[in-house]
Design a protein around this nucleic acid. Structure first.
Lengths: 217, 217, 217, 217
DNA sequence: GATGAATGAGGGTTCATTCAT
DNA sequence: TATGAATGAACCCTCATTCAT
């Protein structure tokens, strides 16, 4: 978990031969988009923040929209990475998930850690999703489908073992995902200035999911 | 529940002496803001959609931002209305809440019904919250604080009766609210085009909350 | 001199059957035009200041320009009144002007008194003259020509008596008028906030004109 | 005197690295503001006159007001330049001012020449002064104070030599300045279309000031 | 590759004026 | 007569994007 990568590393890795100026542009754009939103951020503003001429931005990214895409695509890919890598959970994280609790605990900690590390980027993603058809499509194709597919397998194996209650798989996945993201959104987007006892909240959230999905004896 | 009012009725009631054109402007603005977002909607666009001269918008709403506020303020007030009316749940809904389940069931159905009826408006609210300091303040003061206060009382009474598990009250409120809104956002904002079995999903959500918060015997 | 009339009286006399609202409009317009200039004053602003509907202004004055004209025309007429009334100086002011000094003294006190009483109006006149061809024409036809004509007669009579030096009549008139208006403009338009010892300045101005135009013995 | 610089030269010198388009904008703005007044001139109009896109204006001057300031500031500085340069009159103009007449003659010719060369600019300055607080402040601080200070020294030296009459220094300065500007305003702003015998008028004006301020023997 | 001046369409907003009530 | 809602042209200004240097 401590080896998780931050946004920029990911982007820089994805785009080869990245110049120093390009790097500055990306950092500036992420900060600006995150703070004021994509539509309300001007390219002039990004250029100034990056200490770069406005034209330089367009040399690297044909349009402003391209810049947004360049920022969000790596995030989406990394967000779902653990779910598409074969046996990611067992191999990479070295966990065998004998129990549903272990699984939930691993996934919550892992993804919340990731979200926290990439707050700004993720903030941009969920802020912009309602306004961009293509982003929504990307989200649906990548995040929704791929995460769902992997979770489905795992959830069904737990269901077979009667470790979780008998509700439609997609419902339990949705409820799980919603609970995790719900915490993140409340924590970092809706009420960022409130006092939060993060450890306790995360543990409570895990318990909530577990209680909500495991059967009474 | 069937007597719940829709957005526009609320706005029209709040603003007396509303013109016919003004009404058209509000309807057009709600549709446009909901579809493309506040920043990406031009006043010219709203005017055309409303069949009105652009200047007419500014006769009624000094700025574009004022128009947004005029749209969202009544929503916020109505969204929290059930929580500030004394004994709303028992009197208006004619329920006595002997059990936590009855309470959850009532609140989920009631607020989801309301959100569904005011989809467009609520979509605007959550889409714009990240970009407007004042909206965030309004949300925090009204929705977060007032809903929380009322829920807190109820939840604590259930906790006293050992009907729900012993976790911090604010956590259980957050988890409940997150689960309800989580369904709404997934349903109407993130994946509106997916097929949804609404009745089943709602019931599952209720069960999830109940299981997640009630103690094992 | 004490019987001199103020702006509004003049206007109200000129326009018969003036309503109360119309009066309020004129007062408001004079104040606004004087403060911010004609071009920078909106009819909406005037309406508000007058406590009148915007439409009411246009019921009485077809255009904004008409309103300006309605304000300035009486001023121009009154400004030149003393110069066109036959024997104004000797009859009305009860002076016989045996000497040039008496003449200058009378005219300076009389017109400065008038300007002071109608500061706002006169401020509008000289502020707007550079921007309105018709105003400039009115000024030229009325003020320049008519004042000049009368002054010319008087000045030439003094010149004949060798009471003033032998320079072109139009020059001496210009220098006299310039000196009077020069004081007024410096006093009320350019440096209104400076401390002014009015009595002394006026007396000095009179002396200056006298010395400047009368011959050395 | 023949070496006096014109407006644009001054502005271009003040603002380094001036673009060709920027130069065109300044020329167009000066012409337009001078003709129709600042408030009545649209930026679109200036752009067309300058053969430039409207956006180009705002690239160089953040606001329309900034454009006005960029035009007028150099004028003010140059207008007062002779008065702040040490010994300007004696050194640069190579005059020793043994007499008050020499002094007046030099100053009238010099400043009227300057005003004539910069008619349009000066017209803008006096047209806009009544409407802009900051311009009035600039005028007061620069022109009024600095010119006054220098004139005061000279006038007092003449007063000591009994070359001019014993009236308050500020009065004699005001009367002198008013007489010069009075001619200019009558000549170029109020009655530009009248026939003027400039040489004669200037000589008469000088005589007027001299007579008005020098004592009778 | 990097610049930044230049563009012109489009942004939100103001305005004088009209007209049904 | 008086109103004030409605208009739409025009206003100042911002913007993403282009291109000569």
């Amino acid at each position: 978990m401590s080896s998780q990568e931050s946004i920029l590393d990911l982007i820089l890795k994805e785009e080869k031969n990245i110049t120093n100026k390009q790097k500055k542009i990306l950092i500036a754009a992420i900060e600006a988009f995150s703070d004021k939103g994509y539509a309300a951020t001007s390219t002039n503003e990004i250029a100034k923040k990056a200490g770069v001429a406005e034209g330089t931005i367009f040399r690297h990214y044909k349009t402003k929209k391209d810049l947004l895409t360049a920022i969000l695509t790596p995030l989406v890919h990394t967000l779902i990475a653990p779910f598409i890598v074969k046996d990611f959970f067992s191999k990479v994280l070295d966990l065998s998930y004998n129990t549903f609790e272990e699984f939930i605990r691993a996934i919550v900690y892992n993804r919340l850690e990731f979200l926290k590390k990439n707050q700004a980027l993720f903030k941009i993603l969920i802020q912009e999703i309602p306004f961009h058809e293509d982003l929504r499509e990307l989200f649906k194709e990548q995040i929704a489908k791929k995460i769902f597919k992997r979770m489905e397998e795992l959830v069904e194996s737990f269901k077979a073992k009667s470790e979780i209650i008998d509700i439609p798989t997609y419902s339990s996945v949705r409820l799980t995902v919603t609970s995790i993201f719900g915490y993140f959104i409340a924590r970092y987007i809706l009420l960022p200035e409130a006092k939060w006892n993060d450890e306790e909240e995360i543990e409570t959230t895990i318990q909530f999911i577990l209680y909500g999905l495991t059967p009474r004896k």
